Computed example of a mutant assay.
Amino acid sequence: MRNVCDAILRKLRDAAAFNHASKDRLIAAYSRILGISEANLVWTYLNKRTHEEADRDDFDAEVVETVVQSLEALDAIELRRGR
């Protein structure tokens, strides 16, 4: 998941021809998500789904909130009129 987010962010930054009113908000949301350390467990859970395993640590609530807020920000961006 992190690699996908990283690739999307890279494309957004490199796409000089992509001029959209929401480009800065897209970049900000992906940058916020990618600001979470690669070593954080949230990436493991996003990649492999969440399920109860006794040997796994709990989520860091602050990191989860960052992910949720970033995903909500991405979802709220209108990329095409009416969508």
Rank of each mutant, 00 (worst) to 15 (best):
V4N: 11
V4S: 09
V4P: 00
C5T: 08
A7W: 01
A7C: 04
L9Q: 08
R10E: 15
R10Q: 14
R10F: 06
K11R: 12
K11A: 14
L12G: 08
R13D: 02
R13T: 07
A15V: 05
A16E: 10
A17S: 10
A17F: 05
N19K: 02
N19Q: 13
S22A: 13
K23V: 02
K23T: 02
K23Q: 09
D24V: 03
D24E: 15
D24C: 01
L26G: 01
I27W: 03
I27R: 04
A28L: 06
A28F: 03
A29Y: 02
A29S: 15
A29M: 08
A29H: 04
Y30R: 01
Y30L: 10
Y30M: 07
Y30I: 08
R32H: 10
R32W: 00
R32K: 14
R32A: 15
I33N: 02
I33K: 02
I33A: 08
L34F: 01
L34Q: 06
G35T: 10
I36K: 09
S37L: 04
S37C: 05
S37R: 11
S37W: 01
S37V: 05
S37T: 03
E38P: 09
E38L: 06
A39W: 05
A39E: 14
A39H: 12
N40Y: 02
L41I: 11
L41M: 13
V42C: 12
V42P: 00
V42M: 10
W43C: 04
T44M: 06
T44R: 13
T44W: 06
Y45T: 12
Y45F: 11
L46A: 13
L46F: 00
K48D: 02
K48P: 00
T50P: 00
T50Y: 06
T50G: 06
T50W: 11
H51T: 12
H51V: 11
H51M: 10
E52P: 08
E52N: 08
E53T: 13
A54W: 06
A54C: 03
D55C: 08
R56G: 00
D57R: 13
D57V: 06
D57P: 10
D58W: 04
D58Q: 06
D58R: 09
D58P: 01
D60P: 00
D60A: 03
D60K: 07
A61D: 10
A61S: 09
E62F: 03
E62D: 15
E62L: 09
V63P: 03
V64D: 04
V64G: 05
E65H: 06
E65W: 03
V67C: 12
V67K: 05
V67H: 05
V67G: 02
V68N: 12
Q69D: 06
Q69E: 01
Q69N: 15
S70L: 08
S70V: 04
L71T: 11
L71D: 10
E72A: 14
A73C: 09
A73Y: 04
